[in-house]
Each structure stands twice: as C-alpha cells, then as structure tokens.
Design a protein around this nucleic acid. Structure first.
Length: 530
RNA sequence: GGCCCCAUCAUCUAGCGGUUAGGAUAAUGCCCUUUCAAGGCAUGUACGCGGGUUCGAAUCCCGCUGGGGUCACCA
C-alpha cells in the first residue's frame, strides 16, 4: 500500500465507559497511519453537555494506552492542530456556521421543539413521503429574521440540503453509496445553546486537522449525504470515507451493553491481555494469509490493507477471545506471566465490592456469558481480597511464584482465573469442613485413611532429590494399589488438604513447591479435622 | 415503514470462474491423565432462494428473501 502518509483519527465522545468499538476503530485507524507512515489522532467529541461523563475522557486515554493503540496527537499529548477537545474549539464552529449562513448555504431556524415534535408526529401518523424538518424557516425573509433576532428568539442553524437528484458519495469499501436527495432534511449544524452538532464539528475539525481518511463505523453511513454536502458548502476537499462493519451481539444486532460486555474496563478487569484483545479485534473483519490467527500487531501491519476488510458484521465472540487469551498467556515466559498476574492482582486489590454477585435478572441471558460473568466475579473477589498475600508472594517469594507459573499457565484463559491456582501457595489457612474431603463415593473417614497413608508415603521420599516427583508418584500408586483404592481417590483428600480445593494445580508438583514440612503441616491439619 | 448497507459451517473466516469448499473457536467422540486444564487424533456442520451470463459458478449480473444500520437542537 504505497500511499501518502494518512492522517486519521478516532473521535469518541466521553459519555461513559471506553467502548470496545472505539478500540476496534482505533486499531484500524492506527494501522492505516502506521502502514502509510502517517499520524493517528484522538479527538474528543464532547459537544453534548447533557451526556457528558466527567472521568470518561481519562478512561479513554487509559484504555487506548492499555491496548497500546497510542495516538500521535490528542488532548493529553498535544499536537500541531489542537486543541483536540471540541469543547475548546467552540468559536471555530460558530464562525464556520456563520460563514455558511452568510454565503446563503445555511440559515437560521427559529422553530420551537414543540413545533418540530408536532411535525414529526403528523409525519409518522400520515407516513408522508418526506420525513424530517419541512424547511419552514428556509424561506424566512430578511425582515422576519431581523425581527426574530430583535426578539431574541432562540435559533439553530440548518444546512440547506439539495432536494433533487441523488447524492452520490465514494466509500472505500463499497465503491459508491447513493441517496435520493429528496429524503434528506435540512440538518441542524449549530444548536440553540451555541454548541455545534456532531456533524458540523466533525467536518470542521477533520478539515482543520488535515484528516485524509475517515475510517469509522457503518452506523455513520446514513449521515454521509449531510457530511458530503457540508464539505461542498465549505468548498473543502473531502477525505476518503471507509465505513467499517459494526461489531455485533450474538443475535447480530449492534454490539450493546445489555447483550455483551462492551466496556474496555471490563476486559481489563477480567484479565484479558491487551495484545490478545488487539489480535482478536484484528480478526473482526480481517484475516491473515495462511489461516494465521495468532499474530502480533506488527505482523498484522505487514498484511493490513483496507481492501481486504470483510464487510459482514462480525459477532463478537467472547468464547473465542477467551481461547485466544489463553494462547497468549501460554506464550508468556514465567517471569512475564508472573508480572502480569502481579499487576492484575494489584489492579483488583481492595475492589471486592465492584465484583459482588449480581442478581439473576442483571446477569446476561446467554449461558456462556452468564457463566463467565458469575465466575469472573468470584475470581475477581478472591483476588481483590487476597491481593496483599499474593503480592507479598511475588515480592518476597519470587522463586516460588516463578516455579508455579508453568503449572498455572496452562490452566488459564484470563489472568483472573489465577484465583483458582495461585493463592494456595501463599495462603496457609483454609476454612475446611470434614465434608469437603468426601468424594462422590468416598467418606471423610476414607479420606482420613488416605491421608494417613500419604503421610507414610511422604516419609519415604526425599523432597530435595531431583527424582522426587517420580518417586512420590510411584510410591503413591503402590500405596493406593496396596489399599485397593483408585489412585484418584488416594490423591483427592490430599489435594483438598494441600490446596484447599478439589480443583487445583497438579498435586505432586504443588507439594514439591510447598516443601515437605508445609505439605506435612497441611496434611496434619486435615487429619486433625477429620 | 422510508432510505442505506450486508450475505460461505452455530461463530470468526479462506476462497476472488474449474477445490473432495480449507482453517480456527465452539460441539461430540477417542487418546493422554492424580483434579482442572492444556495437548493429540477423529467426526458432524456452510456457499439463503430464484433467475440469468458461461463449456463451467460460492465466485460475475438481476430479483427475492433474510439480517443489520439509520431516520434528534445524541454522538
């Protein structure tokens, strides 16, 4: 793609949690900038005062940084064509709107919202051909306008849209998209509060910031005619438009909070790795040659080409993301994974309340999502609570921490799942009841017998010896056989005694990590309980 | 409903006129196995329908159907 350096941007509005769709668009924009040696810009579109959320902007910054989808220019990093926050560019929009009015390409509209609402009602009821503003104020005489102004009537500025013919606009993916002009309405450019609408600000800024390619979500296609007419009215050159498919819920509707986790904070808190997220998002609408599914951003770049984007709306499948994340976890070195777990635990520390169980009606309906969310909350709560212990383990018993990483890694999909495998090495008090030692076909009494037998076995083993693992296993098998019980039933009570749970890392290796005295201590405690 | 966009397994996708329609996730079965995983092997599952064009269509064209988006002084 030997193209000129592109200047691209994403323009999220700070109205809530940073959205996965924002990351998706950031990725493809960042890629085009990198591919062409251009710049990727972050612009905050905060022109809606009613939906403004104070810390949303900072979270967008943080989320993009987390994903390493960094921007070259933006509100917090500056740049040559700032400010990058629309609320700080208000005079420009006002001036732009005025110039359009002066040139006769836009006009002031004094219609009240009551009239507009009534109009809308009639149009819906009668199913009139033309829906939308009827252009009443377009034909106001200069005298009437002057009169309205003297009276201080609130007004908006509307663009004069053409009413005949087709509006044809180029789209990088679709060739061309065309709309009957008669369906268009004179859209509001400047609101009565003096703030611009998205459309005005967007075009003014894209032009002022030298944006060459607008890669954005498909939901914007329908405002393409307006944007096109705006560029025409200003006499500005239009950027290349490329409308990406929308991320979808399982039912194919536009991805939404109710049906899917959409907050990037959710993914971070759940323990997804940023590089896995980026990889996964890359696969939404794009595929690498040779059936490659696991690849770095750099590898993605080598093959990235807007021409290869798939237009069908991809369903965001958490199951596959979860698998992919596991693959990334397993690619990490012991040191790398340890560090990720440490950072993750630190992130969750003290946040137990964020992860309280949800009432059933607030849980997702989809069984996988529901199940995942329940487990995720449990894991997160455990980690939040045990964070100090786990962190101390990382800081002061690094050798132990590193030794267990291989045991843990192949059991993880997300970092949070470490809650099931890591704490047992650093927590030495388990709240256990005799029933916890019972199996499907075994009683606590059977468990006690097995534990006593395990003690005998352990007494014969030199934990420090390099063959300790095999020795312990062989001896255990022989013992189990001698007792006439299955090896699984022999190990099960010890597993509970050692790890505090029925599901754990491999038992023998865990015992070796803990060492003979701690292992023995845990077994003795269990025996005492039974 | 009007307008617009889209269309290969359940899902993500490969395919760009001639393939036994390939891979991955998920599912199922088997193997491995001290739990849980991970891993290995195997199986089933797709070109929405109807017309063209062509010697030949998943691939090109048209229609239908289906899905989605959008119809604000929100972005």
């Amino acid at each position: 793609m030997a193209e000129k350096p592109a200047r691209v941007r994403i323009a999220p509005s700070p109205t809530g949690d940073p959205h996965v769709g924002t990351a998706y668009m950031a990725l493809f924009n960042r890629a085009l900038a990198d591919k062409t040696g251009g710049k990727f810009i972050l612009r905050i579109e905060d022109t809606d005062r009613t939906r403004y959320v104070a810390d949303s902007e900072a979270q967008i910054f943080a989320a993009l940084r987390w994903l390493n989808l960094v921007y070259d220019e933006g509100p917090d990093v500056g740049g040559p064509v700032g400010p990058y926050r629309q609320s700080e560019r208000l005079p420009m929009y006002k001036e732009a709107a005025d110039s359009l009015v002066k040139a006769g390409k836009a006009y002031r509209c004094y219609c009240t919202s009551e009239r507009l609402e009534a109009l809308r009602k009639i149009q819906t009821a009668e199913k009139t051909k033309h829906q939308g503003y009827d252009g009443l104020c377009r034909s106001l005489t200069p005298e009437q306008v002057a009169q309205n102004e003297r009276e201080g009537k609130p007004c908006v500025v509307r663009l004069k849209m053409p009413s005949e013919g087709d509006i044809v606009i180029a789209d990088k993916f679709r060739g061309t998209v065309s709309f009957p002009a008669s369906d268009q309405q004179d859209a509001v450019l400047l609101k009565s509060d003096g703030f611009p609408t998205y459309h005005l600000a967007n075009i003014v800024d894209d032009h002022a910031m030298g944006i060459t390619h607008v890669i954005r979500a498909e939901e914007w296609i329908s405002s393409l005619p307006l944007h096109h007419e705006l560029y025409k009215a200003f006499g500005w050159e239009e950027p290349v438009f490329a409308h990406m498919p929308l991320l979808r819920n399982k039912d194919k509707s536009k991805i939404s909070k109710r049906k899917n986790p959409t907050s990037l904070l959710w993914y971070r808190d759940a323990g997804f790795l940023p590089e896995a997220m980026v990889n996964f998002l890359s696969m939404m609408g794009f595929s690498m040659s040779g059936d490659r599914e696991i690849f770095t951003y750099e590898e993605f770049l080598t093959e990235f080409d807007l021409g290869k984007v798939n237009l069908g709306g991809p369903v965001f499948n958490l199951e596959k993301l979860s698998w992919l994340n596991g693959e990334y976890v397993r690619k990490l070195s012991a040191e790398g994974l340890a560090r990720r777990i440490y950072d993750h635990v630190k992130l969750l520390m003290g946040r137990e309340r964020d992860f309280a169980d949800l009432p059933d009606e607030e849980l997702p309906k989809d069984t996988f999502l529901k199940d995942f969310e329940i487990k995720r909350r449990r894991w997160s709560r455990n980690l939040a609570e045990l964070a100090p212990v786990i962190m101390r383990g990382y800081e002061h018993e690094r050798d132990v921490f590193l030794r267990i990483m291989p045991l843990v890694a192949e059991r993880l999909h997300t970092l949070s799942e470490a809650a099931d495998y890591v704490p047992m090495f650093f927590v030495n008090e388990f709240a256990l009841k005799p029933e916890d030692f019972a199996g499907k076909k075994t009683t606590p009494a059977d468990a006690k017998k097995a534990l006593l037998a395990m003690k005998e076995v352990m007494a014969t083993i030199d934990f420090a010896h390099s063959g300790a693992k095999e020795a312990l296993e062989d001896a255990s098998r022989k013992k189990a056989e001698a007792m006439g019980i299955k090896i699984g039933d022999f190990f099960a009570p010890t597993r509970v005694a050692i790890t505090g749970a029925k599901v754990s890392p491999p038992l023998i290796e865990s015992m070796l990590v803990l060492g003979p005295s701690e292992s023995m201590r845990r077994i003795d405690r269990a025996i005492a309980l039974l």
